[in-house]
Every structure is written in structure tokens, then in C-alpha cells.
Amino acid sequence: MGFSMMWMDLIMHCISSVGGIIKPTRGIQQGDPISPYLFLVCSEDLSSLVTLANKDGLLTGAKVCRRGVEVSHLLFVDDCGSYGERSWVIKYIPREYESCLGQHISFDRWLIFYNTNL
């Protein structure tokens, strides 16, 4: 995303050091004050992958109405919804996201529904 190395080093220092005798072993945890901000940065990468696939013609979003805007995905808290025509790319975007960011995606809770009326 173009962040400077100094900024990334500062964030890594924040999430990998706690101070005192406490030694972090699992990284950032839910409830950590910096967690929502880091999630937003990661979500932006996921959104960029979907947007890029849409621009390349690999995904087609769903239109809200005939002349309306096309919606390809919506992000809400820790969920992502993808909308549009069925495409093989939708399987690979989460895997690419996971490998780039090292953030684990729970594929056990991941569902895909296709509308046969499209």
C-alpha cells in the first residue's frame, strides 16, 4: 500500500513488544486498541484484490437497479460479502489475501451461494 519502512517498523514494534517482563508469543489479540486500525488496513488490501479482479473483467458485480451502481463486495466488521456472477476467481482471492498478509481465513466458516436466476 506504499507505507514507509519507518511507519511499518513502528507498527511492528507496537504489536510485538509489550514492555517489562511480559514476552509476547501470539502477536496482536482481539481487544487490543490498535486491532481495529490494522484490520482496516488489511481489509483495504482485500478490497483492492476484488476491485482489481473486477477492473480486469474477471469478476462482475451485481447492479442494485438497471442503471444503478455495480456492487462487487461489501465489508462489515470481520465479514466480507461478494456479489455478482459466478467466477472461478472468487475462490482464489481469499487465498491470495491470506498468503500476502499472513492473516488466517477461517474457510470452515466461509460460504458461497450462487443464484441460478442470474
Rank of each mutant, 00 (worst) to 15 (best):
L58G: 03
L40Q: 09
G81Q: 08
I105M: 13
D79F: 03
V64Y: 06
Y37N: 10
Y83L: 15
S4P: 08
I15R: 07
L59W: 01
V64T: 15
S35P: 00
H73G: 02
S82R: 07
P33W: 02
M12G: 05
L46A: 12
V41F: 14
E96D: 03
S106H: 14
I112M: 10
W110E: 03
G84A: 06
Y114F: 09
S17G: 00
S16G: 08
C14L: 15
I21E: 12
L10V: 05
C42H: 07
V71F: 07
S43T: 01
L59T: 05
V71H: 07
Y97H: 12
S87A: 11
C100T: 13
H104I: 01
M1R: 02
R86A: 15
G27Y: 02
M5G: 00
I22Q: 09
I105D: 04
M8E: 14
I15S: 10
L40I: 15
H73S: 14
G81F: 15
W88T: 07
F39K: 01
N54G: 04
V69G: 01
F113V: 09
K23N: 08
Y92A: 08
K91I: 03
E44Y: 06
Q30L: 12
G19I: 06
K63N: 11
F39S: 13
Q29V: 04
C14Y: 11
M6I: 07
F76R: 01
V69A: 10
Q29K: 13
I34F: 11
G81D: 08
Y37V: 06
R86V: 11
H13G: 05
L75I: 11
L118Y: 09
S99H: 08
E96S: 10
A53G: 00
H73P: 03
A62L: 11
V50G: 01
D9Y: 02
N117L: 03
S35L: 12
E44G: 09
V69M: 10
L40E: 07
V64W: 07
S99I: 12
S87F: 05
E96C: 13
V89N: 00
R109L: 11
L38N: 01
I22G: 00
Q30Y: 04
S4Q: 09
T116M: 02
I21S: 14
L101P: 01
W7Q: 07
M5F: 00
C42T: 09
S35C: 12
Y97D: 03
T51Q: 10
N115F: 10
